[in-house]
Nucleic acid binder design. Structure first.
Length: 271
DNA sequence: GATCTATGTAGAT
DNA sequence: TCTACCTAGATCG
């Protein structure tokens, strides 16, 4: 379930369950076996996330890099670990809990240098203290590429996915196709602050809620879509349903092979 | 049980 | 722009 908040949540959970104690690392499926053997029994020094990337550091030049991609999942449970079910790429077993990784796009052992290279390609992560939104703004405001595409560009914003993109544009009343060059600095500052708050809320709750109090069902009589993330959202996957603010039918457009959800009335094209 | 769909990315064409 | 990856929940019948 992978937007940035999920990865930060996993990092936090792994740090808590496995941090600073020896971990049994294995690859029941076999595809990570050689690396798992190098790590097995070492203490996990630190788990952290940058955007949608997760890093488990065991020591110098011993960093597991995980990217869940579209399908990847981590499941966890108390020890003793059950027999592996399905294709478990990596299993971690600690003193109290175990975690299974299935279906990731990436699960690989990297050197510090390689980790630095991965991270150098990533833009500002709203969930990291070291995020530099000035860099994102410099890039965003220089490009005529539509905001909807730029928000999903991990080189500019690390961790923003299809849900946060759609919801952020809606919350700020922006046409998804508006060129980056047409966005004002003040509006941008508001968006960044809002994005940080939304994603932090996502980490805390483990779900993406974006609907303001005044637009909840009690206030409007219009039921928000509770997505299978468990979150209440304005437009994401609400195609054809009435906009929670104005009642207009939510639209679906395909953009660069991804579904883009928006309200044509709340997010009008600039005249 | 079968089928569809998706919060993503890399690599081929 | 297309395809592969190859999980799991929702939906269909």
């Amino acid at each position: 379930m992978p937007e940035g908040h999920t990865l930060h949540r996993l990092a936090r959970s792994h740090q808590k369950m496995f941090g600073k104690a020896p971990v049994e690392v294995s690859s029941p499926q076999g595809r990570f076996e050689a690396s798992a053997k190098l790590l097995d029994g070492l203490p996990l020094a630190r788990a952290e996330a940058h955007g949608k990337h997760l890093f488990h550091r065991y020591g110098r030049d011993l960093v597991v890099h995980v990217h869940l991609g579209l399908y990847g999942t981590f499941t966890e449970g108390p020890v003793p670990a059950e027999p592996p079910r399905g294709q478990v790429r990596m299993r971690l077993v600690g003193a109290t809990h175990f975690a299974d990784l299935r279906g990731p796009t990436a699960c690989e052992l990297l050197t510090d240098h390689e980790v630095a290279a991965v991270r150098a390609r990533l833009g500002a992560d709203p969930l990291r203290r070291d995020a530099d939104p000035e860099q994102s703004w410099a890039r965003l405001s220089r490009s005529r590429t539509p905001l909807a595409l730029q928000l999903m560009d991990q080189r500019i914003f690390a961790g923003v996915g299809n849900v946060y993109r759609a919801e952020l544009l809606f919350r700020h009343g922006l046409d998804p196709m508006l060129p980056g060059t047409a966005l004002g600095r003040e509006r941008w500052d508001e968006m960044w602050v809002d994005l940080v708050a939304l994603m932090r809320d996502g980490v805390r709750k483990g779900r993406i809620d974006t609907v303001r109090k005044e637009h909840t069902p009690r206030a409007t009589g219009r039921a928000p879509r509770v997505d299978r993330h468990g979150g209440e959202v304005y437009v994401y996957r609400r195609t054809g349903q009435p906009c929670l603010v104005c009642g207009t039918s939510v639209q679906l457009t395909e953009l660069a092979g991804r579904n883009l959800f928006w309200c044509p009335s709340c997010q009008p094209a600039a005249a």
